[in-house]
Simulated scan of single mutants.
Amino acid sequence: MQAFEYAVPEEVTSNSSGYEFLAYICATSFLSINNDIIFNFTKCKFFEGNLCAVLGNIIESLKDRNNRIHFQELKGNLRGAFSRNGFLGRYSTAVEIPKTFATSLPYARFKMSDEVIANRFFRKELFGKENMIRMSDLVQKEIIRNIFEICLNAHTHGGCEHVYCCGQFNLRKVPKLTLTLADLGKTIKANVNNHLNQNFSGPEAIKWALTEGNTTKTSAIPGGLGLKLVQSLIKLNKGKLQILSSNGLVEIHDGIITEDLLALDFPGTIVTIELLLTDPNFYILQSEENDWNNIF
């Protein structure tokens, strides 16, 4: 029995350094069984709430191997944020879970059979927020379906049981919604290279998987990352899409695709969606256009 301590950096955000820290935890705790795992927040001043999806996934994996989780020096605004999104309440009996999550999309996890549960969750916690961008009921339905496809693909392609999610409505400076979904299943790089018998880098594999029509499924059932409509919404909204898997990080922002190679492999996939809440548009599907013209 040992104790392993992780000093959480001053800032953990949705960028290469933030993702590398999370990958470092995975890499160094992979063989840990029946140990004490300590997360020391003494130096940490900011930890993006949406990344609780990733940290929670890692913690659940550690708990599955009988490790015990401890949080040290988690205080002030940071502790408040981790409490408001329901993350801390999952791992500490001393924390009361708030009844409402005004600016948080709560920490949750879904499995393949949870489509109805996920639908209700995102209807309430995503589209039920007063600051969310406006769209028709059919667009909401399709966006939720796209998001749940990420869960299905994590199970089908990655072989993992759960996908974890968490989000944050940031109403300061540039108001935006940031939503992250994470799994610790087989990586996109491994799946694509096995399927194509290639040696793509992490970013190359992700870009291949993002291309419409590409899938590593061998059956007639449609596959891919399930992000077509989400990508369209992000483009019109001028938001951002990030996908991290293995050592590859691909970001799509304002029509520009950038890529990065991480120093460490992340043993799974992280999808982060960012939408600007200042968007004045009302979104409808093309199939609804005639109906809306008749209404107005």
Results as ranks from 00 to 15, higher is better:
F122H: 06
L244T: 05
P222T: 03
F46R: 09
C44Q: 04
Q2I: 10
I188R: 02
L62S: 02
K228Q: 13
A118E: 04
F47D: 04
S83G: 07
N197K: 15
I37W: 09
V12H: 08
E274T: 15
E204F: 08
F41N: 01
K228W: 11
P267G: 07
G268H: 01
V271S: 07
Q198I: 06
R90K: 11
S61I: 02
L55K: 03
I117M: 12
D291K: 14
H162A: 09
K45F: 12
T156L: 14
L177G: 00
F82W: 13
G56P: 05
R65V: 01
N131H: 08
L105Q: 05
L105R: 00
K207A: 04
F200R: 12
I188W: 03
C52G: 01
E149V: 02
A209C: 14
N146I: 06
Q2K: 13
S232E: 14
L244V: 14
S219I: 10
P9T: 09
E289V: 03
P222R: 14
T180H: 08
A3G: 10
E289A: 10
D265C: 10
L264F: 08
Q231E: 14
S16F: 07
C166H: 01
N50M: 06
F82D: 00
E149N: 12
T278R: 12
A220D: 15
S17C: 12
E161M: 11
T103R: 05
W208H: 12
E212C: 04
S92H: 12
I234Y: 12
E204A: 10
I234Q: 06
L74T: 02
I133D: 04
K75L: 11
Y283L: 10
R123F: 02
N119I: 03
K238L: 15
L236S: 11
N40A: 09
E115W: 10
L229H: 07
F282W: 11
I143C: 02
L138N: 14
D183Y: 05
F169D: 00
I221G: 04
G224R: 02
I295C: 09
I273M: 09
I97D: 03
V8W: 06
L181A: 11
P267L: 07
F39L: 09
A209M: 15
S287I: 08
F82Q: 03
A205Q: 02
L227H: 10
P175I: 04
T180L: 01
E11G: 05
G167H: 03
C165F: 02
A108M: 03
C166F: 01
N131C: 07
D114K: 03
E259G: 11
G255A: 15
D183N: 15
L229P: 03
V250L: 06
A205D: 00
V95L: 10
T178N: 12
S61R: 08
V192Y: 05
F39V: 03
N294S: 15
Y19P: 01
D254I: 11
F110I: 08
I243F: 07
F87V: 01
L244H: 01
E212H: 08
A23R: 00
E161R: 10
E130M: 08
A118T: 01
S232V: 02
S219R: 14
N194C: 09
E149T: 10
C151F: 11
E125I: 00
V192R: 00
I270G: 00
I59P: 01
